Amino acid sequence: MRPTPTGRLVAAATGTDLEMTRTFKAPIEDVWASITEPDRTARWFAHWRGDGRPGATVRLTLVHEEGSPESDLTIIACEPPHRLEVETVDEYGRWHLEARLAEADGVTTLTFLHHLEPDTEVASTGPGWEYYLDRLAASVAGTPAPSFDDYYPAQREYYEGLTAG
């Protein structure tokens, strides 16, 4: 199966954001727990340890990446169950990320924003976030996780097209 890329570039006050949306047939509290509780985030992205509050720095371990790399992650904003904003810096650059949640009629919508640095390579970053957000969706739904091979390099051309315009 080849998932369809959903990301789009959006002008923002501070530059450009990569925006993706996912919907879940789940209460907002369940999706919130999946993006904020260490045992739940480890199911789809990374485990973290530390004091999870605004202004604090936690230690993030990417459990689905080769070598389980670690980095510090600063929590910029945490407004349960509607908004989480974080930032980390690693050998690939600065990652300023935001998740916004809203619920209507038993469906929770997650809007994911990667506030891009000018030198961010969207052609590889976009497929990576598509993969992780689909892992999140599988985690919430209790279905099998997707394979990264279905996202990269298959979606590279789509994301190159976004930056060419």
Results as ranks from 00 to 15, higher is better:
125 T>G: 05
1 M>E: 09
76 I>N: 10
104 A>S: 15
1 M>H: 11
162 L>P: 11
37 E>R: 13
52 G>S: 12
93 G>W: 04
95 W>V: 10
149 D>H: 13
52 G>I: 07
10 V>G: 08
108 T>W: 02
145 A>M: 15
136 L>V: 10
107 V>C: 04
152 Y>F: 15
49 R>N: 11
102 A>Y: 02
90 D>M: 00
122 V>F: 12
108 T>N: 04
127 P>F: 01
99 A>T: 08
108 T>K: 07
75 I>H: 05
162 L>F: 09
55 G>M: 09
113 L>P: 08
18 L>C: 10
43 R>N: 11
160 E>L: 14
61 T>S: 11
56 A>T: 04
52 G>L: 12
119 D>A: 11
82 H>S: 10
64 H>G: 06
63 V>W: 01
102 A>K: 12
76 I>F: 08
15 G>I: 07
78 C>T: 06
35 I>H: 04
36 T>F: 12
50 G>I: 03
87 E>Y: 00
104 A>Y: 08
130 E>F: 00
113 L>S: 14
3 P>S: 02
36 T>A: 14
154 A>T: 14
53 R>N: 09
42 A>L: 02
49 R>L: 07
27 P>N: 13
144 P>D: 09
48 W>S: 01
105 D>R: 14
29 E>A: 15
148 F>R: 12
123 A>Q: 10
3 P>G: 06
